[in-house]
Design a protein around this nucleic acid. Structure first.
Length: 1044
RNA sequence: GGGCAGGUGGCGGAAUUGGCAUACGCGCAGGGCCUAGGACCCUGUCCCGUAAAAGGGGUGUGGGUUCAAGUCCCACCCUGCCCACCA
């Protein structure tokens, strides 16, 4: 076909149109037939030794979707495309990439959807499966279709149940009665991780607490390792932080507070009480609290126990108002979690009459309260309340008028050195009549500032008297209606009048005037200041403006605290600026009012005080055990059998159960799977029992041990258990005897790259890590961490808002694929923004990508027709290594390679656009080799169009059988030559005083002299260089800056 | 309340170590092609200023460091996400 006939040209022109749908389905079918995305998973070499087994395994995993019949969400496609680009890139780098896909179709989400549309989940799953796989096929990912799995497949959940059995046998699965999260709408219990701000993760209903006996996994045994291992894995930092917070390790102390029932006589001294308590301690009645702030023990002015606390269970603890307390407990328990949180602003509680606790630090008798702001399942369920340094305790103390004692004094200014501090303070003088504050307006030299009246305390003088004396001396006011100590701080400050640096323990007093009468004669006359009345706003503004002096740090604190207190006393209710909120000091500082620990740094005092009161230093985790039971239908039945007969026999003589069993037996492994029966009444019951509990043929079984009639567990397991181990099954889906094949697992795991949503940072990802660690401990695998590398992709939103069904802005990828093709949609999604940051889907944007692909197509067609016309095919034309095209080609190769590695797909695509622009403006200089490289760089993003063009231009296999062709996706990734990237000239930026005044092109490596000469050539530069420059800054290959 | 991410043209977003702010794309404007529309191609597009230049301003706000700041430091404001009475 040398000369083209007119029909030939017409045919060519017709062919030039880009029909993505046509080529996309064609290549998808060929890839599938050719098995180009199926690595050889087997581990052992082939018999004759020369194996073609995978040499460089690369397990590229993405989070499998939970399907609903609505179909694939564009957000799924966003995640999958981003993961697939990485996989394709690795494949072209010579790795044997394994990229499996499956469906997480078991569990509440799928069941709720089935309920909503009134279909049986078992039937629905067959429909959604088909639909999902069809859609997943269409997006053009390099999936290993032969290894797909579905979590509701008995061949899969057989092993999910097997894991449960093993965990039970190893003591990591146990049953206990506990107040658990109950979702009234889903009619099941939920794990803590599935309760978001008191609401059900799935349906958003408010979650209640319910006392139920449930199955738990002992994930808390692994808390420390789950935390520590985070250091070793290459994960998105934000996910690691989320896990760290969720595990919530905190170091603290367990401190015992002895109880006393003889507190009526309040006249006794502390020593007497101590003696008394020492004797009453023999009764060993005490409350143990957990605290991370043992340093504040001297400020513990009362104790609070949770409504669930065991001491409230028996009347014998000596509570005189037991009826009232019980009423409170019942009321608290009936509240939902949400109500308890919502009510957090308004604290409630009841004092336990007839009992007091003894603060072990100072022997003080302190009251005990029950209040629901203390939670039963956190720490010991009891706290020591330090209202001066904890906001919740502070609120509670204010409401019930309990004593507040400051223990930790903040330190303002720089860190204290060893110098001795002076005792002193300041007074905030307030006149309720005018709502103004009296201050000293200083003037000294050029400086002018406001200050509080302040001074040092003289020997033998008490601090309050000292401050009042200073106020009288400095201002003349003496007629006070209210004097109150507000706060103490340790402050470095500069005494301006005397021009010396000082360190002081400063106490602030709020002084409210009765009258503004002035003492006839001030005792001291200051030349440097005058007394002025200003509003709080004015004084604060002045203090903040002149913040050159450390003294002001604590003055600002004092003023805010004092004004806050004045507001509270209702001396000022109208003109208070919002900044004046009384704040509780919760940070570290220096101890005051703390016996022999006074003056110590609070951080240091923490463990000293713990030791002093014989407390126990311990570590506490926020993480709690994983609640596994679900009272639902659509999940793997928990493979356990309860035998009443065995339960009876295993009890010891006194009736308590023995350690080895309460009659619970795991289903023997040979009997797995426990198949989920098809039942018509699958709706959740709401009775606390699964719908399976009324299916006799399911639950009525023989005890595996004693063969008497027994009852099968009818709850199913949490859906997160299904997905916690699926990555182990993928490479071993054909393994029948074990959950995973050890040799294959050894070869392919841990997962090399895992990409998924950040919303799973503490659910799925934590559970998977837990199980992987357990399997490793059992010697079943060789790794503790399942995912060597994990990257969280960003959230795809639509027109600035989150996509949701209620907003009706969910994008269905099908329509877009039909209209623009999968390649265009893939590239558009990736072009929206940085993959790890997410993007905003707007319909207008996809046109740009479509245009780009059409231009690629047209450019390719020109090559094809030239191939046909020319004796020497374009593909054989040798590129000129010195040409501009070569340079930009190699630069682009470098950029695209690096960007894909960093998941910065948006900039990689932009680089490809720049390259195409360059091709188009230098058409005649583009060689076949250049196009070859371009298509390979494009291949991970737009796999279909690049395959089609590559085959037509370069391959001899285009028309061969689908099974014998050589795909571009198996070609090697282009390499760049760093030498070709090197520019030999650069554009010198010429600045005068940092402002751009001109440019010049110079050879790379030009010296300062040459740069200067070049700069002087330019009129615009000379114009600004009237005098000899003071300084010349020269940055090689970049710029020259003249400072004049 | 805490943690994290972020704030740059009309919009999505670029910007190595601090060194030409706004790459690439969308949109918009003008022009070409065409009976016309669409598609496509070319040119322009941060703001003020100008016939055009020259010049000036400009990366959430206010300060600082520097010859030079989107980038570093301090304080603050706003948005999004996650967590939240965790002792």
């Amino acid at each position: 076909m040398r000369g083209l006939s007119s029909q030939g040209i017409a045919a060519t022109l017709y062919f030039m149109r880009y029909f993505p749908q046509k080529i996309e389905s064609k290549w998808q079918a060929r890839w599938l037939k050719g098995k180009i995305y199926e690595p050889d998973l087997l581990a052992r070499p082939r018999r004759r030794g020369i194996g073609t087994r995978a040499k460089k395994p690369f397990y590229n995993l993405m989070m499998f979707p939970y399907p609903s019949a609505e179909g694939l969400h564009v957000g799924n496609m966003y995640a999958f495309t981003g993961a697939d680009i990485y996989g394709r890139f690795k494949r072209m780098q010579g790795y044997d990439v394994f990229e499996p896909i499956g469906l997480d179709g078991f569990g509440i989400h799928s069941e709720n959807y089935a309920l909503k549309i009134g279909k049986h989940p078992m039937e629905l799953s067959r429909i959604t499966e088909k639909n999902f796989y069809r859609q997943l096929q269409m997006i053009g990912n390099g999936f290993a279709w032969q290894e797909r799995l579905e979590t509701y497949d008995p061949e899969y959940y057989k092993w999910t149940q097997w894991i449960f059995v093993r965990l039970f046998k190893e003591g990591l699965a146990y049953r206990k009665k506990q107040a658990v999260n109950w979702c009234p709408s889903c009619k099941t219990v939920l794990a803590d991780e599935q309760v978001i701000s008191g609401e059900c993760e799935r349906c958003g209903s408010k979650v209640h607490k319910k006392d139920l006996e449930q199955w738990f996994f002992k994930i808390t045994d692994y808390a420390e390792r789950l935390l520590k291992n985070l250091e070793k894995i290459d994960w998105s930092e934000r996910i690691k932080i989320a896990q760290r917070n969720w595990i919530g390790r905190s170091e603290g102390a367990l401190i015992k507070f002895a109880l006393s029932r003889n507190y009526a006589d309040t006249t006794r001294t502390n020593t007497e009480i101590l003696r008394k308590s020492a004797s009453s301690q023999r009764e060993s009645a005490f409350i143990e609290v957990f605290t991370t702030r043992a340093d504040t023990l001297f400020g513990a002015t009362y104790l609070v126990v949770a409504p669930e606390h065991p001491m409230l269970m028996n009347q014998e603890s000596g509570i005189m108002n037991y009826g009232e307390v019980r009423g409170y407990i019942q009321n608290a328990k009936s509240k939902s979690e949400e109500e308890r949180i919502a009510a957090s602003k308004e604290k409630t509680g009841v004092e336990l009459k007839g009992v007091k606790a003894i603060n072990p630090a100072n022997g003080e008798m302190i009251p005990i309260w029950v209040a629901d702001y203390v939670l039963g399942n956190i720490g010991t369920g009891a706290i020591m309340a330090v209202p001066a340094h904890d906001e919740r305790d502070f609120e509670f103390a204010k409401k019930f008028d309990l004593p507040i004692r400051q223990i930790v004094a903040p330190e303002t200014g720089e860190k204290r050195n060893k110098e001795e501090f002076r005792d002193g303070g300041s007074g905030v003088v307030f006149d309720p009549e005018t709502q103004k504050y009296a201050i000293a307006h200083w003037k000294k030299g050029e400086r002018e500032w406001y200050g509080l009246f302040s001074g040092g305390v003289e020997e033998g003088e008490d601090i309050e008297k000292g401050i009042l004396r200073e106020i009288k001396e400095e201002s003349g006011y003496y007629d006070f209606v209210h004097v109150e100590q507000i706060e103490t701080a340790f402050a470095h400050y500069h005494n301006i009048p005397r021009n010396v640096d000082r360190f002081a323990k400063a106490t602030c007093f709020l002084v409210i005037l009765k009258t503004t009468a002035v003492q006839e004669q001030k005792l001291e006359t200051h030349e440097d200041f005058i007394v002025e009345w200003v509003s709080a706003g004015e004084i604060l503004e002045n203090l903040e403006r002149n913040n050159y002096n450390h003294e002001h740090d604590h003055w600002i604190r004092f003023l805010k605290q004092a004004v806050g207190r004045a507001i509270e006393l209702r001396y000022d209710t109208t003109s208070a600026p919002s900044i004046f909120h009384q704040r509780v000091h919760t940070n570290s500082g220096i101890l005051i009012n703390s016996g022999k620990f006074t003056g110590t740094d609070s951080e240091k005092a923490k463990w000293e005080i713990t030791k002093f009161v014989k407390g126990k230093r311990t570590v506490h985790y926020r993480l709690r055990d994983w609640l596994i039971s679900r009272q639902r239908y659509w999940g793997p039945p928990i493979p356990m059998i309860f035998c009443e007969n065995c339960a009876k026999r295993s009890r010891t003589s006194d009736g308590s159960p023995t350690s080895d069993g309460l009659g619970w037996h795991p289903v023997p492994e040979k009997d797995l799977p426990v198949r989920l029966p098809y039942i018509k009444k699958f709706r959740p019951t709401g009775t606390g029992k699964s719908p399976l509990a009324s299916v006799e043929r399911f639950y009525k079984v023989r005890c595996p041990k004693c063969k008497s009639w027994a009852r099968r567990e009818t709850d199913v397991s949490d859906t997160f258990l299904d997905s916690a181990w699926y990555f182990l099954r993928y490479p071993s889906v054909r393994e029948e005897k074990k959950p995973w094949n050890p040799a294959i697992t050894k070869k392919w795991l841990p997962v090399h790259m895992y990409i998924g949503g950040a919303e799973h940072s503490v659910l799925h990802l934590l559970y998977s890590r837990f199980l992987a660690m357990v399997f490793s401990d059992w010697g079943l695998t060789h790794f503790e961490e399942p995912f060597a590398k994990f990257r969280a992709h960003g959230l795809l939103i639509k027109d600035g808002a989150k996509m949701s069904k209620s907003k009706g802005n969910v994008v269905n990828p099908d329509e877009y694929i039909r209209a623009y093709g999968a390649d265009a949609l893939r590239m558009y999604l990736m072009f929206l923004g940085p993959f790890e940051q997410g993007g905003d889907f707007r319909d207008t944007g996809i046109k740009g990508i479509t245009r780009f692909l059409e231009r690629v197509w047209r450019f390719g067609q020109v090559q094809i027709s030239q191939n046909l016309r020319s004796q020497i095919p374009i593909s054989k034309k040798v590129p000129n290594p010195k040409s501009k095209i070569q340079k930009i080609l190699h630069q682009t190769t470098k950029k695209v390679t690096e960007d894909i590695e960093n998941l910065q797909y948006n900039t990689a695509i932009s680089a490809l656009m720049v390259l195409l622009n360059e091709f188009e403006s230098n058409k005649e200089k583009v060689s076949g080799e250049d196009i070859n490289v371009f298509l390979k760089l494009l291949a991970p993003f737009a796999p279909h169009i690049s395959e089609e063009l590559w085959q037509r231009i370069f391959s001899t296999t285009y028309n061969l059988q689908p099974t014998t062709f050589r795909s571009i996706h198996l070609e090697l990734w282009p390499k760049y030559n760093p030498k070709l990237i090197q520019e030999d000239t650069f554009e010198l930026v010429i600045q005068v005083n940092g402002k751009l005044r001109g440019r010049a092109t110079l050879p790379m490596g030009a010296k300062e002299k040459e740069a200067k000469d070049a700069a002087m050539q330019i009129e615009q530069v000379r114009k600004f260089l009237t005098t000899e420059p003071k300084k010349i800054i020269f940055v090689q290959n970049k710029l020259i800056n003249f400072v004049v």
